[in-house]
Computed example of a mutant assay.
Amino acid sequence: MTRTRFAPDSGLTGRMVITLFLLGLLYVAFVALLIYLGVQAIAVLVLAGAMLLIQYFMSDKIALFAMGGRVVSPQEAPELHGVVDRLCALADLPKPKVAIADSDVPNAFATGHSQKKSVVCVTTGLLRRLDRLELEGVLAHEMSHVAHRDVAVMTMASFLGIVAGLMTRVALYSGLGRSRGNRNGPPVGLIILVVSALVYVVSFLLTRALSRYRELAADRGAALLTQRPSALASALTKISGDMARIPTRDLREAEPFNAFFFVPALSGGASLASLLSTHPPLERRLEQLAAISAQLGRGV
Rank of each mutant, 00 (worst) to 15 (best):
D131I: 10
A89I: 03
I54G: 13
R15E: 08
F257W: 15
Y27E: 05
F262R: 06
R86E: 13
S103V: 00
L190V: 15
Y173Q: 09
F21N: 01
G14V: 08
I18H: 03
L93D: 04
L206N: 08
I162M: 13
V44D: 05
R3V: 00
K61R: 15
R70S: 13
G125D: 10
L53E: 03
T13E: 09
M58P: 00
K116R: 14
G165S: 06
R212H: 08
A140Q: 13
S114Q: 05
S196E: 09
L23A: 08
V83K: 06
L22P: 01
A218R: 06
L33C: 03
L64Y: 03
T123Q: 08
C121D: 08
G181E: 14
L64P: 01
P264L: 06
L272A: 11
M143C: 04
R128N: 13
F57C: 01
D104V: 13
K61H: 10
V28L: 15
A265I: 03
E76P: 10
S196I: 12
L135R: 09
P229G: 04
E134T: 09
L193V: 14
R5H: 15
G82W: 10
A66H: 08
P256Q: 11
I54L: 12
A209S: 14
P229S: 07
L33K: 01
P186D: 05
E76M: 05
G175D: 08
A66W: 02
L93V: 02
A157M: 01
V300Q: 12
G38F: 04
E287W: 00
R129G: 01
A218D: 09
G175T: 06
A197W: 15
R70C: 03
D104T: 10
R169E: 06
S271A: 15
E253Q: 14
V163W: 11
L224G: 06
L64H: 04
D85V: 02
D9W: 11
T155V: 15
R212E: 08
D102A: 13
R214C: 14
H145W: 06
T123R: 04
Y56Q: 04
P229D: 09
T123V: 09
L176W: 09
H81K: 05
A291T: 14
R128Y: 05
R228C: 04
P247D: 07
G299M: 14
S267K: 13
L236N: 02
E79P: 01
S103R: 11
V300T: 14
Y36V: 07
